[in-house]
Amino acid sequence: MHGDDTKLKNLDSRIKEAKSSIKQNNNQNIKPSPIGKVLKLAVEIVAAMAIGVAIGLFLDSYFNTRPLFTIVFFLLGSSAGILNVFRVAKSMQNN
């Protein structure tokens, strides 16, 4: 029983040592590949545009004003996409 205790304490200190040495050199080891980053940006811009156009088409079919809202929301969607890309790119730079 006593031998187990000292063994455990030994192990504990060894784990702590190993952990502190690991922490120094890799805190974030998962990084998306360049292609992954590009895909991420592409998806952001396309998704925002698609949502914009979808809202526009819905409003147009509701109010019978085709193509007024489709055009307006396409432009808004594109701006939202660029805004998204800008934000993602900024967070990528911070990492």
């Binding site: 895909l39 952001e44 925002a48 949502i51 914009g52 701006s79 939202a80």
Partner: peptide, 25 residues
């Protein structure tokens, strides 16, 4: 009037972007 719709669309595009990314990959 410009910023609020853009922010709302940007917010709504989140689930689309999230799911398309996983599916496309």
């Amino acid at each position: 009037p410009v910023i609020i719709p853009i922010e709302i669309i940007s917010y709504l595009s989140r689930p689309v972007a999230l799911s398309v990314r996983l599916m496309a990959n």
